[in-house]
């Protein structure tokens, strides 16, 4: 189990319980976290689950694959801390993860 906190652009936050093996996107969708659209259902094909990973967590979440980088080209306001959360697998190590939801997913 890992608790993941999603922070919205207006500063409000929501913490969800995620299970190892899920993706961060799936955990968010199950709890209806606002701003995570995931139009393609997790195929890394749409860039509508774009999030920012807090600095101190980036080592644990890893960095985007080449395919994910390509897809991030379709996201808006991409930063060094940008990820597509359908590509982050939940592990128990991610307990306490803080994820910032961008202002817009396009």
């Amino acid at each position: 189990m890992a608790r993941i906190t999603f922070i919205q652009p207006d500063g409000t936050s929501q913490t969800v319980q995620a299970t190892a093996g899920q993706t961060v996107m799936e955990a968010a969708k199950l709890e209806n976290v606002a701003g995570i659209e995931a139009e393609c259902g997790g195929a890394c094909a749409c860039a509508t689950c774009h999030v920012y990973i807090a600095d101190d967590w980036r080592e644990k979440t890893g960095s985007p694959s080449e395919m994910e980088e390509d897809m991030l080209d379709f996201a808006f306001d991409v930063r060094a801390e940008s990820r597509l959360c359908c590509q982050i697998k939940v592990t128990d190590d991610l307990d306490g993860l803080i994820v910032q939801v961008p202002a817009k997913q396009f």
């Binding site: 139009e39 749409c46 509508t48 080209d73 379709f74 808006f76 396009f106």
Partner: peptide
């Protein structure tokens, strides 16, 4: 003139 190419959405 601006031509943005950010893919498609439904």
């Amino acid at each position: 003139t601006v031509l943005p190419f950010f893919g498609l959405t439904m």
